[in-house]
Amino acid sequence: MNIVFVGLSLSSSWGNGHATTFRALMRGLDKLGHRLAFLERDVPWYANNRDLAEPDFCTLHYYESVPDLVDRFGDLLAAADAVIVGSFVPQGVAVIDAIVPLCTGSFCFYDIDTPVTLAKLRALDFEYLADHQIPLFDIYFSFTGGPTLERLETEFCARRAEALYCSVDESRYAPQAEEKIWDLGYLGTYSVDRQPTLERLLIEVARRMPDRRFVVAGPQYPTDMELPANVDRIEHLPPTEHASFYSRQRFTLNVTRADMIAAGWSPSVRLFEAAACGCPVISDRWPGLEDLFPFGRAIEVADTTEDVCAILARDDAEAIAEQARKIVLASHTGEARARELVAALQSLHVTKTHQRDAIAMGASNA
């Protein structure tokens, strides 16, 4: 298939999780033999922080504006078997309106922020998607599964909503033979709604366990954030260093945004990446997590500071990490996710073909 993505960013992972999600998925699609292109708005904050300017699995193009997108890449979009627009695309509403008339193949949306998107729609905030545009898509692929899929179809009139979780490129995320230097670490961009959980499940733990070492990595944290002396701080960690980072931790912490906890069934790419690297995960609690990783066997769940302290005092991390890695390699690699995407697009093609045949047969019998 010839698939074109229009997304937030492929070239830069700075301050967003979209890039690594798209990279794993598209590498999986490339392995399956599909032809791929990615269209990205050229903006300074990503242009100045690119860590994949020339991908080897797709063609990457930059556009300056919505008219520029249409003028320079209209033929590419029209020739595609499927066009997939991502969430948080700059001027997304205008981009969608401009692309709709061009598409001759399947037209889909990939929401890597579904709970945030629905909260915005409820508030009449149409930053990158308007509610009247949802029925335009043949398939609404959602980072969030569970009951949210039914809600997309019944409340927002999506023609078809499918879960398409993020995934991990197992060739780049694997255990490294490195010394463990941190007892617990966290990797994530600063977020106001995640910060209380980070405080409770890592920073306060560090205060209570001064003989242990901790680390917080990720951009955009307040410059005046106070950390205990035993907590290391890393401003930005490019994906090329993620495997090493996870491999140097005894445990890593997963912290989920409030909207995604409320919706459930919204696994962060960090869960899959850490597990693929053989690093056991301690996570906050949310609906659907145990469907992915059985509690106590493939993941540890903590609600309080005391929970984390007790987990760090145990010595059964290796078995938990091994089980989680098996689950990820079986079901959550980029290639596994690519097969899910292709199967959905192919079933859509079959449905459309049957519909066209039925219409043609009805016309011939008239």
Rank of each mutant, 00 (worst) to 15 (best):
A319H: 11
E290C: 08
E306P: 12
A317S: 11
P294L: 01
A275S: 15
S247E: 00
D291P: 10
E241R: 15
F251N: 04
M260L: 13
E318Q: 14
F295M: 13
V255S: 00
E290D: 14
K326E: 15
L312Q: 08
R248T: 05
R314Q: 11
C309A: 11
E318Y: 08
L271N: 05
C279P: 01
A243T: 02
K326W: 10
A263V: 06
V308W: 04
N254V: 04
G264K: 08
L312H: 14
V328I: 09
A263N: 08
E322V: 11
C277D: 02
S283K: 02
D307W: 05
H242M: 05
L253G: 00
G264M: 03
H242D: 04
A274H: 02
D316W: 04
A276Y: 02
R257Q: 10
Y246N: 02
S268R: 00
A298Y: 04
C309Q: 15
A313W: 09
C309H: 07
V255P: 05
D315R: 12
E300G: 05
D303R: 10
V328G: 15
F293K: 10
A274S: 11
A319I: 10
E290A: 08
S247A: 07
D315C: 13
E290F: 07
E300Q: 12
S244Q: 12
F295V: 14
T256I: 06
V269A: 13
A274C: 12
P280K: 02
D259T: 13
D316M: 10
S268F: 09
W286Y: 15
S266T: 09
F293R: 00
E273T: 03
V269E: 12
A276G: 11
Q323R: 08
F251I: 08
D259C: 10
L289V: 02
S244L: 14
D315W: 11
I299A: 03
R248V: 03
S244C: 12
F293N: 03
P287D: 10
R285N: 14
D259P: 11
V255Y: 01
I311S: 00
R297F: 07
A310W: 09
E241Y: 04
C277W: 01
R314G: 12
E318G: 11
C279N: 00
V281N: 03
G288C: 00
T305W: 02
G278W: 02
G278E: 02
T304P: 05
P287K: 08
R270M: 02
I320H: 00
R325W: 15
R285I: 06
D259S: 11
R285W: 07
C309E: 14
I327N: 15
L289Y: 01
V301F: 04
R248G: 02
T304V: 09
